[in-house]
Design a protein around this nucleic acid. Sequence first.
DNA 1: GGGGCTATATTTGTATATCAGTGTATGTGA
DNA 2: TCACATACACTGATATACAAATATAGCCCC
Lengths: 227, 227
Amino acid sequence: MASTKRSNAQQLRDCLEDDIINGRRLPGERLDPDALGRAFNVSRTPVREAFQQLVASGLITVSPKKGTFVAKVGIDQLIEMFEVMAELEGMCGRLAARRISEPELAALRVAHERCEAAALAGDTDVYYYENETFHDCIYTASHNTFLASEARQLKQRLKPYRRLQLQVRQRMHNSLNEHHVIVEAIAKGDAALAQQALCDHVLIQGERFSDFVSSVRRMEAPAGQAG
Amino acid sequence: MASTKRSNAQQLRDCLEDDIINGRRLPGERLDPDALGRAFNVSRTPVREAFQQLVASGLITVSPKKGTFVAKVGIDQLIEMFEVMAELEGMCGRLAARRISEPELAALRVAHERCEAAALAGDTDVYYYENETFHDCIYTASHNTFLASEARQLKQRLKPYRRLQLQVRQRMHNSLNEHHVIVEAIAKGDAALAQQALCDHVLIQGERFSDFVSSVRRMEAPAGQAG
DNA sequence: GGGGCTATATTTGTATATCAGTGTATGTGA
DNA sequence: TCACATACACTGATATACAAATATAGCCCC
C-alpha cells in the first residue's frame, strides 16, 4: 500500500539508488534522463527530481552541460568517508553498550550467529547480507534515531565500495572475530571497548587497507577521467 | 560573477535557507510555493527544486497534499542531533590536533581573539558570528573535507535552535573559556583533550542543557501541532 | 443537535513545450 | 596538417497546463 503511494520520482530514486548501491550501475556511468524516462514511462520532470535527490545523497553528480553520472569518489575522499563512518559506528557502539535492551541484545546475538553460519559455509554473499543486519542492530540499539539514520545513509553511500572489502581473503573470518569482541563489549556494557572495537572494525586498519585501496583503484580504472 | 550564474532555484534555496537558519522563518511555518514564486518572479518549478534541496538538508518537510513547512524537530530529536554534532566536533578537534598547520593554527588563534573581543564588548551577535568562524577553523584544520562538510551541514540544521543557546546568561563567557582550552589542546597536539573539550563544549553539558530545552519548548509553543 | 457524506477547493505531482547556454564536431582556410 | 570558427545537438532551466489526491467545509439526514 505504501509502495503505491510513493510518487514516481520516489520510485525512480529508490530504483536508481538500489542499482548504484548494488553495483548494477558503476561509478562513472552516465545516466540518460530520456532513457530513464522512457523506461519508467515518466517525463523528464520526475527524473530530474530523482536526480536531485540522489545528488543530495551524494550518489550521483551532475556536470552542467555534460551529463549526469554515478558519483565516483576519489580515494582520498573515500578514506575520509571511512574515517567518518568509523567514528559514527564507534559512537553507535558506545551508546548501544549503555542503552541496549534485552530484546535488542538477543537480536544482536542472533545476527552474529547468522554471520557465523555464513562464514562457516564460506558464503560471502550471505555474510554480506547478515553483516548488514548485525550492524543495523547496533544502530538501532544506540537509541539515537538520528545517528542511526546518518550512519545508514553514509553506509549506503559507501556500499558500492564496501562490497570489495570482503573479497579480500580472510577478511570475512577476521570480521567475524571482531564481531565477537563487539558483541561481548556491548553485552558487558563496556562503552569504551565497544566504541574502539567498532571503530577499528570499520577502518579495516593496518595491512588490509592498502589491499582495499588497490581494489578500488582497479575499480576506478575503466571509467577513466579523474576528478 | 558566480552569483549571476546560479540558477533561480539555487538563489531561492539559499534565500530560504538563510531565512530559516536566521530565524526569519520559524519552525512549523508554512511555505507557499505560489507566493514564493510570485515574490521571486519564477514559476513553481524552480520553487519546487529549492524545496527538494531543503528537504534533503532536513530544513523543511513536505506533507503531500497538506503543504510544505519549515522543519520542526522535536526535543528528543534535537537532543539526538546535538549528541551527533558533539561527536563530529570532537572528531574534528581530534584530527585537528594532529593535523593542523601553522597558518591554520594562527587563524584559529585570531578567531579566538575575536571571540574574546566580542565577549568583552558583550556583543552577543558578533560573538555568535565569530564563534562560527572559530569552529569553522577547526573543521578545516581536521583536513577531512567530508567530515568538515558534514559538520557544517548539521550545524546549519541546528542553527535555528543554537541561536537560543547563547541567550542563556553567562553562556557566552563560559563558551569563551572552553574555547581557550580547545585552542591550547589543539596547539599542544593533545588529540584526546581536544576531542573531549569540543565534545563537551557542544553538548552544553550539565545544568545549562535544561535551560536550553525550556527555551526550545517556549519556541515550539506557538506553532502548536505535534509530530 | 450531531454525525456522516459529498462536493469543492487547495495543494502536490506530473507532463510537455520552450529557451538558453555550452560542448563538440566538422569544415575551411592558412 | 593544424587551428579556428561556425553550426548543430544535447542538456539543463523554466514556464505553463493538467491530473490526482486529500482536507475541509457545508449540507442533509438521522
